[in-house]
């Protein structure tokens, strides 16, 4: 059994028509089935409006299925009695670093999740310190959140998720609003967490980030149109372009320079060129 099992998921937003009645709106997610294994690192990519963010929010029950189901570690997200079991297993980090920090002081914010779970004070302290060390923000635990840079705030948000000791963290475009330094730092934290066995699901627009995952899920118009390893995906250039995605720079260069299709990283290209002499 996989850790997360999504089956025939449909998420439809209702809208209010001119007469004030609720009418069915767009199907943001339209018949998605996929399994996510424990400990894996999965990237979800697609254009704006492809449904990737909606899918992400359904993985911990923030959005509930209109049809189909999402089962996390045996718990159905529609089962109200176990919604906290789902959310404590699947943490989430959002795009805007500013809008997800609840408390003014760094360590109090990280404690927010464990406090909601009703954990003992001493244990919360341990978890908060541990989570802050994980993201390299332990030295700043007494600081005001508004004094931090965007990248630092995002690390606090990640610490807030880690402190709940989840088995999986969903990152919903965590680097979209950061500068290159902040972006690199967040990516290295995600990879460390995955190496420690936490299942990571990364929603992103940056192919250079997606290619670091074990598996890339491509979405378009609410449907999964591709589910491949990075190497498989980026060897199929017409498909990537039809999905409205960008090619990672090395692949773009391979295409432009007419190099063989099996090269997918800068290092491989360098080897190929050196060997051709």
């Amino acid at each position: 059994m996989s850790f997360i099992e999504v089956k025939d998921l449909v998420i439809e937003f209702t809208k209010i028509d001119d007469e004030g009645n609720e009418v069915p709106g767009k199907k943001a997610v339209d018949g998605v089935s996929l399994n996510i294994d424990k400990g894996s690192f999965v990237a979800v990519v697609g254009m704006n409006g492809s449904g990737k963010s909606t899918l992400a929010k359904s993985l911990n029950g923030l959005l509930l299925p209109t049809a189909g189901s999402v089962v996390v570690d045996g718990f159905d997200t529609r089962d109200e009695d176990h919604i906290w079991d789902v959310r404590s297993r699947v943490g989430m980090v959002f795009q805007n670093p500013d809008n997800q920090i609840v408390s003014s002081i760094v360590e109090d914010d990280v404690a927010f999740g464990p406090e909601n779970l009703g954990i003992e004070p001493d244990e919360i302290r341990r978890r908060v310190d541990d989570a802050l060390k994980h993201v390299g923000m332990y030295d700043q635990k007494d600081k005001g959140a508004h004094m931090l840079s965007g990248g630092q705030k995002q690390r606090i948000a990640i610490a807030g998720a880690i402190a709940m000791r989840p088995q999986c963290i969903v990152f919903d475009e965590p680097t979209a609003m950061l500068d290159p330094k902040g972006r690199a730092r967040v990516m290295s934290i995600i990879k460390d967490l995955n190496a420690e066995g936490i299942t990571c699901i990364l929603i992103t627009h940056f192919m250079s980030e997606a290619e670091q995952a074990d598996r890339i899920i491509v979405m378009k118009d609410g449907k999964v149109i591709g589910d491949r390893t990075p190497a498989e995906l980026f060897s199929d250039i017409p498909f990537v372009e039809s999905a409205g995605l960008e090619l990672p720079p090395a692949i773009e260069l391979r295409k432009m320079a007419g190099l063989p299709g099996n090269l997918s990283t800068a290092a491989e290209i360098a080897e190929h060129i050196a060997a051709s002499r």
Binding site: K57, N60, L62, W84, R87, S88, G91, M92, F94, N96, D98, N99, Q100, I101, V102, E107, D108, A111, F112, G113, P114, E115, N116, L117, G118, I119, E120, P121, I124, R125, V128, A157, G160, A161, M164
Partner: peptide, 26 residues
């Protein structure tokens, strides 16, 4: 927009009102 984002973030971190909540620093 901030309120909406924050509400989602709080729910994602299992906020469900005051009952059953503990505090790091009593």
């Amino acid at each position: 927009r901030i309120a909406q984002d924050l509400a989602l973030a709080m729910e994602a971190r299992c906020y469900h009102g005051g009952s059953g909540r503990t505090r790091m620093n009593e």
